[in-house]
């Protein structure tokens, strides 16, 4: 039901490298789970609004007042590659 190319596409969207044999197993597992999930596709939900929040809150806003942040040392302390006081990443091509 979920073929290898869909698995490959989704894995790329999610930035997950799967070995080719893992992709196949993943496809089978996802298909198995989706079989169970498909019960909701038979439900009549016409006219039923979606629920994003179970609590009826609105307009939770913060005053535009500065709060103390992190020192640069703390901001960078957990990064593996610190370059020029910033976070280093490899080239993007």
């Amino acid at each position: 039901m979920i073929d290898d190319s869909t698995v490959h596409h989704v894995a790329r969207l999610a930035r997950l490298r799967l070995a080719p044999d893992e992709e196949h197993v993943m496809g089978e597992e996802l298909s198995g789970i989706l079989e169970h999930i498909d019960v909701i596709r038979g439900m009549d939900v016409e006219g039923v609004p979606p629920t994003t929040h179970v609590i009826a809150l609105e307009n939770v806003l913060r005053p535009d007042e500065p709060r103390p942040g992190l020192s640069r040392d703390d901001a960078l302390r957990e990064a593996r590659h610190v370059v020029d006081d910033g976070f280093g990443v490899p080239r993007m091509d």
């Binding site: 989704v10 996802l30 939900v45 609004p49």
Partner: peptide
């Protein structure tokens, strides 16, 4: 992550995520 990415992906959102949010309402 794979399952969730799939459920939100273009072409599947309405069938899965959108629908699940409505069943949640029920």
């Amino acid at each position: 992550i794979m399952l969730g990415t799939f459920a939100l992906a273009s072409g599947y959102y309405d069938q899965y995520y959108g629908r699940a949010q409505r069943v949640r309402t029920l």
